[in-house]
Each structure stands twice: as C-alpha cells, then as structure tokens.
C-alpha cells in the first residue's frame, strides 16, 4: 500500500515535470503601469492563449531595462525586451540585442519600412510597435486660447507653472535637443538652448508620467511638454486637460521590440515578435494607448484615429521623429546640462 502511494506521487511529479517542460516560457522585460497593462492585454495574454508559451513579464522603464540587459550580458535571463526609441539605439551600440530574422517572424512583412530598424550590416535589431508623441499639454480651464508653439511655454503668464520631462525620462534629453535647435543651437553648441532655458520658469521636471499628471492635477503646472497619451487619459478622467500639437511639430518616438542576444529561446522569441506586430495587436495598442501603429493596414474607428500622434488626417510622415543616433552621441552632455538647468545650477 505504502509503495503504491509512493509510486503515485512519483508519477504525479514526473507528469508535472513533463508538463512544465512542454510549457515553454519567455522572460520579457516590458513597461510597467498603463503601458504594461496594455501590452499584457493586447499581446501577452492572447499570445499565451494562441501558442501555449508562457510570458513572464518583468516590468521596468526602458533605460533600466537596458542597464539590466548590460549587467546580464554574459548570461542573459531576458528573451525579449520592449524599449523606447533612443534607448533602443543604445542597446544596439552596446551589443545586447540580437538580429531579428524576418523568415522566423513573417508578420514583419506588414510593418512599415521606417519601423524596421537596421544595423549598418542590414540586420534588423528592433521592430517598432507603435509611435507616441510629445506635444503641449495644458489646463484648458486656465488657458483658454490653445497654445500653438513650443514658444508658448515661455509666456510670462505661465511663469513658475511649466511642467517638463527630466533627464531621467526618455524624452527629457530629446526635448532639450529640440529646444536648443529652436533657439539656434546645434548639438555641438548647447549654449543657445541653455540661455533660452534660463528664461523659462518651470514648476517641475518629471521622471515618470505619474508625477507630471499629479502636477497638472494639483495645479502646480498649467502647461508643459508631456505625452499625448497622458493628456487623453487625464481628459477622459474628467480633468480640464487638453493636448495641442505645436506648429514646430510634435516630438515623436516609438516603443520597440528587441530580441535579447544570447537568448536560449530564439524561436519562441521570434514567435512573440511576429505576434506583436499583427494588425489586431497594433490596433488594440492604438485603441488603448493612442499609439500610432507601425503595422500597415490597421483599421481604426474614427474616435481612435482622431487621437493618433499625427492628428486625425495625418500620417507617419508628419511626425518629427527624434534623430536618436545623433542625440545619443551627445547624450552625456545633454543630460548633464538639462539636469543642471532643472536644479538651477
């Protein structure tokens, strides 16, 4: 009797081990918060249902994901990583991402060319998963004439109440580069941008969107450079917050998918990439996050289309996508100047 009980347990353990082995799993580094929720609902959950491959998500901001990948480079734990434009190029340069093979991810054929990021050798190191925009977000109760230009942030009426992304936020550095360019500077010469910024009185510099949103909510700030998505979220939550595309063009970037170099699950990782760029998934992300699909042929309902980063009737060509390779070459200097400006040094 005893023996039988034991053998039952052994059989159960063996079966459990067997199923665990049959159930492949992927370690994925992706965003937290509402972006993470959207990726989970639009991509990871349906992917698990469709393929039986488990997706284990470790949430972190893009730059933190990159430092994680660098630290783990000798024995990678992650298989697939979502990172923003800008950080993506840094990941390419530090050699922590592997080329994506289009023959293993046939869905890439439906992705527009600009969103297939290639190394000089021609290999695809990242695939775009949707464009987002940073424009002017303002309190429509306090500001009745919609702002039209980045210059409006310097309006004396808003002194001390301007909200801007910090150098830790992935759009902080490119925003400063953009302001510097508007002031007549170049990446080699940040002085015009620095001088221009000294005439602006900010309320706060945000590391994460949550802090910016609280700043708008509590009235600390009435205008600022912030993500369009967040403006729509606040407006939908009943706050008097509106979004305006500046005439200089909204600054755009995108979220991108990468396969981690040295992954032991390359095939499953390619399956996830293939799944994530399908029109259904891109449409779902567009609806939930207002990101512009980088997959072609995605049909969007009019209310979703109106909130695309390129505006209701625009297209990808209307976006001022940041030149990350150039910005990254000056990242240290831009980041330091921006932090010093923020803390008034």
């Amino acid at each position: 009797m005893k023996k039988t009980a034991l053998s039952v347990v052994v059989t159960m353990l063996a079966t459990a081990g067997g199923t665990a082995q049959a159930n492949e799993s992927l370690n994925v580094s992706a965003y937290g918060g509402s972006w993470g929720d959207a990726l989970q609902a639009c991509i990871f959950t349906p992917f698990e249902e469709a393929t039986g491959i488990d997706v284990v998500v470790e949430p972190s901001a893009s730059s933190v994901t990159l430092s994680k990948l660098q630290a783990e480079a000798s024995s990678p734990i992650m298989d697939v990583a979502w990172m923003d434009g800008g950080v993506s190029e840094l990941a390419r340069d530090s050699g922590v991402v592997a080329p994506i093979d289009p023959s293993l991810a046939p869905g890439l054929a439906g992705v527009i060319d600009q969103a297939k990021y290639k190394t000089e050798g021609g290999g695809i190191y990242a695939v775009g998963n949707g464009y987002f925009a940073v424009g002017i977000v303002y309190n429509s109760e306090e500001i009745t004439t919609p702002p039209t230009s980045w210059e409006d942030l310097w309006n004396a009426e808003y002194a001390g109440r301007v909200i801007l992304p910090s150098a830790v936020n992935s759009i902080g550095v490119p925003i400063f580069a953009a302001f510097n360019a508007l002031a007549g500077g170049t990446l080699d010469d940040l002085t015009p941008g620095i001088e221009k910024m000294k005439t602006l009185e900010p309320a706060l510099f945000f590391d994460s969107s949550g802090v910016a949103n609280s700043g708008f909510q509590t009235g600390e700030g009435v205008i600022g450079a912030h993500y369009a998505t967040q403006a729509f979220t606040m407006a939908d939550g009943g706050l008097p917050i509106a979004y305006a595309i500046p005439k200089e063009g909204a600054m755009a970037s995108d979220i991108r998918i990468h396969i981690v170099k040295g992954t032991k699950n390359s095939e499953a990782a390619h399956k996830l990439v293939d799944f994530a760029v399908q029109p259904a998934q891109a449409g779902c992300l567009a609806t939930r996050l207002q990101v512009g699909p980088s997959t072609s042929g995605v049909e969007l309902p009019p209310e979703v289309a109106a909130r695309m980063p390129w505006g209701a009737d625009g297209s990808i060509d209307d976006l001022a996508v940041a030149d990350w390779t150039a910005i990254n070459a000056y990242r240290d200097a831009l980041s330091e100047a921006w932090t010093r400006l923020a803390s008034g040094n």
Partner: peptide, 10 residues
Amino acid sequence: FQQYATVLNF
C-alpha cells in the same frame, strides 16, 4: 541613478 540608468556611465 541617472548615471547608472540613463547616462550609462557605470
């Protein structure tokens, strides 16, 4: 944090 996470100058 800034050096480790965004400037990547460990």
